[in-house]
Simulated assay, not measured.
Amino acid sequence: MIRSKRKTLVIEVNAKGEVCVRAPLRMPISQINKFIGQKADWIDDHVRKMKNKQKERQEAGEEKMPISEQEIKLLKTRAKRIIPGKVRSYAALIGVTYGNITIRMQKSRWGSCSAKGNLNFNCLLMKTPDEIIDYVIVHELCHRKEMNHSPRFWAEVEKIIPDYKEKRKWLKDHGNELMYRPI
């Protein structure tokens, strides 16, 4: 369990099938345990899926070589060259402003947008097709209008990327291959 200055409680299952609970600093442990109990079936299902995927990859000989520091450096350099220009273009199209753009090697997110409008992007986006990079950028910029994933948020995304559901599916289907490659 990781406690931080967050407002919501979330459960994550990583590619190894490990469970992480992220909770607000002051949330009572009884409330956290109740939430975990309510999500027990979801947790079991996702742990089983991740363990099966890991086993399938091992059996298929698809365990990838760890990503090197040199490769991360190259991906970050390329992302810093490509992403800011795309952000500028899409921000103008959407009609929003933004703060700083940061490129990092992240293990669980493709991008994020802070309440102050700062944007973070995963350097591993450089290993995805251009239309996926565009989708992630638009997704994060649309959070400048809606800081949630409500129907209004998705309507904003759809105005720019009409087939955004296909892009989301691509990330769901192929993201693990890129995101969870060991370092």
Results as ranks from 00 to 15, higher is better:
3 R>F: 09
4 S>Q: 11
6 R>T: 13
13 V>C: 04
15 A>S: 14
18 E>S: 09
20 C>D: 10
22 R>K: 15
22 R>M: 12
24 P>F: 10
25 L>C: 06
25 L>S: 08
30 S>K: 15
30 S>A: 14
30 S>E: 14
31 Q>Y: 09
31 Q>T: 13
31 Q>L: 12
34 K>M: 11
36 I>M: 09
38 Q>R: 15
39 K>C: 04
42 W>E: 01
46 H>D: 02
46 H>K: 15
49 K>R: 15
50 M>P: 02
52 N>E: 15
54 Q>F: 11
54 Q>P: 04
56 E>L: 15
58 Q>H: 12
58 Q>T: 13
60 A>R: 15
60 A>D: 12
61 G>D: 09
63 E>T: 13
66 P>M: 04
70 Q>G: 06
71 E>W: 08
71 E>V: 13
73 K>L: 08
74 L>C: 10
76 K>P: 01
78 R>K: 15
84 P>K: 06
85 G>R: 09
86 K>W: 08
88 R>S: 14
89 S>A: 15
91 A>P: 11
95 G>C: 10
96 V>P: 09
96 V>Y: 07
98 Y>H: 13
100 N>H: 11
101 I>D: 00
102 T>I: 07
105 M>Q: 11
105 M>P: 00
106 Q>L: 12
107 K>W: 07
107 K>H: 06
109 R>K: 14
113 C>G: 03
115 A>G: 12
115 A>E: 11
119 L>C: 01
120 N>T: 07
123 C>M: 01
127 K>C: 03
127 K>Y: 01
130 D>S: 12
138 V>F: 01
138 V>L: 01
139 H>Q: 01
143 H>M: 06
145 K>T: 04
146 E>K: 11
150 S>D: 03
153 F>K: 03
153 F>A: 01
155 A>I: 06
155 A>S: 14
158 E>N: 07
160 I>E: 02
161 I>W: 01
163 D>G: 04
165 K>W: 06
165 K>Q: 15
167 K>A: 05
167 K>I: 05
168 R>K: 14
168 R>I: 09
173 D>Y: 03
173 D>G: 03
178 L>C: 04
181 R>V: 08
181 R>L: 06
